[in-house]
Design a binder for these strands. Structure first.
Lengths: 337, 337
DNA sequence: GTGAAAGCGCTAACAG
DNA sequence: CTGTTAGCGCTTTCAC
């Protein structure tokens, strides 16, 4: 039973002054006498008056809410990004509304509707793996609500984004494997239509070529989660196709791979090196601990929020593409240089 | 530059009818003629009219927003809970606003203010570790905004909550260790003022007693994260105090413990058994995989949302304490029965 | 069957 | 220095 929250009118009535005077007093308008201000503030305090954000929103046509769409909240990388967004948003007086698409295009569409209806001031989005049609995003942009994409972006749509240089990071990781003596490498890759996956794949391929190792498509396997990494490793073992180094598209896949290798009593990194991508918590927990690419989700989120809020408040129209630096984190699943 | 979103007035003007007619037509009010309805709906569609949720909120005094406060978003358990909340909320037409307290009481207070100002219809909260004063929550409850607590609850405050039977779960886990032959057990515990921690501790203690093993306070060590678990294990090793079984207050602590034991070449579970708590992703990734207590955060979140939404919509006043069942997940860090 | 008017809580332009 | 009025977008009596 929602009891009546104190409003500006209540205060006005009690003090026998007008609502606008109360409003002005509360925000230290220079016109108001000090006595009145004091009177009002004291009562407001006593009554625990809280401005009604909804009324303010309606009036100003600003909700001070940032809408977020991620594929999954329960995913270390995404929750890190969210955390970064929340941090800056809270600082700047924005709330965040979070929705998840569960990798379903339909749900993603629903989320867009919901957020649009909720009149968010802007959105931060990482799209589903297989979204191919980006009209819903275009429509939102057309209404004037800014969107900043991160990590998974949309091709053919001019918009702000925060990404990492997936190509370079993959290139560097692969080259590290080569420099530490691997000659027979495989890549466990994500879906091809995801730019981040294909870029990592090309980084892998080019690192081989430039280091005078031959590359062919058979070095690319599709595996982008724990169980796929696990199963694929077993399969390669059975077919006698295990390499001496594996670069995986993310940490979970690497963890699955390591888990299988452990069971198969194959020594890491002596017999096989494994290189992950993301640097989530799990990379410290695997045995051996995982060498990986630091992706800095927190900073991605923080930067995305920064760009978005700037766009909201200054109504600039320049398109920004921010690249968050990555670095290799060398642990014990690879040999030392 | 937020361009003008289509409103009911725009439609009214174009069709040369009144706003109220449009409003009624849109919601299939029986009074309105079919032609008018069709006309209105068609145009609304064409113009991509979206009702302004903010205006609706102001009017109905319902925001259809659920406010969430968690210590940290980046924490597998909490993100799982959030995911459960989001799922039901989305189903029932609610949005969720997420705030994190970072285990800071001050931030928690701020969050309460923000959410209250945002006129959320209700809140779902897991408090910080060291909050001792719960007045801010009491104040919110007094305004008529319902709160459902989960996992970490507040003593001395009558409110809805969703918890697990921490005592029983800990008792069962400890008993399992005893039954598989452990005679010399330790518990790595969390802060005493957290009910969930102390309950787990008592479950541990009572399991020992009831199984004719002596218990004393020296079996309890304070360690509730990866590095504390890791360091404590090394310390015990140095002092020759390693037991034959360890029950930890959560998975991360167990992971730290396992990591140290691996480095020390101590065989798990042959020499030492390790039992965790939570069943997060990491429990499958540790080596060996971790026996743990399934805490079902998703269901906790889902149930909390269920209770809260019911309270919001039906304005019931009964206080509900829901206990989510736990179960032991036996993997390879403990011996078999 | 439809329109006019009031009001949700607040602010801002306009008076005085 | 303070009050009155109008309006943000929408719903809901009350008229006709």
């Amino acid at each position: 039973m929602k009891s009546h929250q104190v409003t500006i009118k209540d205060i006005a009535k009690i003090l026998d002054i007008s609502a606008s005077t109360v409003s002005r007093a509360l925000k230290d308008h220079p016109d108001i006498s000090i006595e009145t201000k004091n009177k009002v503030k004291k009562l407001a305090d006593k009554l625990k008056y809280k401005p009604n954000a909804i009324a303010l929103s309606l009036q100003s046509n600003k909700s001070h809410i940032i809408g977020i769409i991620v594929p999954q909240i329960v995913h270390h990388f995404f929750s890190t990004v969210i955390s970064g967004i929340e941090e800056l948003a809270a600082d700047k007086g924005y709330n965040i509304i979070i929705t998840q698409s569960n990798e379903s295009q339909k749900k993603e569409l629903d989320n867009c509707q919901t957020l649009l209806s909720g009149r968010v001031d802007g959105m931060i989005v990482s799209r589903t793996k297989d979204t191919e049609n980006f009209d819903h995003f275009r429509n939102i942009l057309n209404t004037g609500t800014p969107i900043v994409f991160f990590d998974r972006t949309c091709h053919g749509i001019k918009t702000d984004k925060v990404i990492i240089d997936d190509y370079k990071a993959a290139y560097d990781a692969t080259e590290y494997l080569i420099k530490t003596g691997c000659k027979n490498l495989l890549h466990f890759a994500g879906p091809k239509n995801l730019k981040i996956s294909s870029k990592r794949m090309w980084g892998f391929a080019d690192a081989l070529k430039r280091n005078n190792l031959s590359f062919n498509e058979e070095m690319i396997y599709s595996a982008d989660n724990f169980s796929k990494g696990y199963n694929l490793t077993y399969e390669l073992y059975k077919n006698n196709h295990l390499p001496d180094g594996i670069f995986t598209v993310n940490d979970m896949t690497a963890a699955g791979t390591l888990s299988a290798l452990n069971e198969l009593k194959i020594k890491v990194p002596e017999e096989i090196s494994v290189f992950g991508f993301t640097n989530g918590i799990i990379s410290q927990i695997t045995s051996p601990s995982l060498s990986t690419v630091e992706q800095n989700g927190y900073l991605m989120g923080y930067s995305a929020a920064e760009i978005l809020i700037n766009k909201i408040e200054n109504e600039t129209t320049d398109i920004i593409s921010k690249i968050i630096p990555t670095k290799l984190i060398i642990r014990n699943s690879t040999k030392k240089l």
